[in-house]
Nucleic acid binder design. Structure first.
Length: 201
DNA sequence: GCGACAG
DNA sequence: ATCTTGTCGC
């Protein structure tokens, strides 16, 4: 069977009711644990959680993260009953050596709109953003703006946001702020991280 | 050749 | 990512 793929461009806030966050952790036995959390928007209450545990078959190589984490993510995502409209990833989108970071690669593979929110830069140059929440500065790579360094909390180290699939830089940045609460990392990936950590016990 | 390098 | 203790602060 083949599932029908429909893209919904998140230009109108009132059309978005389901967002999701994905993260992968590793236990002591070397297994990778992938978690997908679906949240209601704008309440951000958890509606569904999908988990998958696998043995990694590819090593971690900067620039090739999706080859290591892609398999667990796909299996976990396929277990979902609901279809999130925007998916947040722990990693880069197009701010990547070849323009295809984890969020972009997976966004295309899963057929969803996606956004990459990384805690550290992979490529590009940038100036530090202002100190207030929402302040940002562009990340430039090979003469192109590929994302932004975004301050999600006042006086707290910024995060790196770049478009994953079917979304622009400004929209990716704005949606990241819309799902960010009291913490540095936006709720979708923050919760996915906590849950994947919990799965190791 | 040297340094950088998401999770 | 993971290995690891205490500590400062809301």
């Amino acid at each position: 069977m083949r599932e029908e793929v429909t893209f919904l461009f998140p230009y109108r806030e009132e059309d978005i009711t389901l967002v999701a966050g994905i993260d992968v952790s590793y236990d002591q036995d070397g297994f990778s644990i992938g978690v997908v959390v679906v949240l209601a928007f704008p309440s951000l209450e958890i509606l569904e959680v999908a988990v998958e545990k696998l043995r990694p078959t590819f090593p971690y190589i900067p620039g090739f993260l999706s080859f290591r984490e892609g398999p667990v993510i796909e299996k976990a995502f396929s277990k979902l009953c609901r279809r999130p409209q925007i998916v947040f990833f722990d990693g880069q989108g197009i701010a990547h050596p070849r323009g295809v970071g984890l969020a972009t690669h997976m966004g295309v593979a899963l057929g969803v709109v996606s956004i990459g929110v990384a805690k550290k830069p992979l490529v590009g140059s940038f100036l530090p953003p202002g100190e207030k929440r929402g302040d940002f500065s562009p990340v430039e790579y090979k003469g192109r703006v590929v994302g932004v360094v975004l301050r999600t909390q006042e006086a707290v180290k910024p995060v790196f946001v770049s478009p994953g699939n079917c979304i622009g830089i400004v929209e990716a940045k704005d949606w990241t702020l819309k799902v960010t609460g009291k913490y540095r990392v936006p709720e979708p990936t923050r919760l996915a991280h906590i849950l994947s950590e919990r799965e190791k016990r």
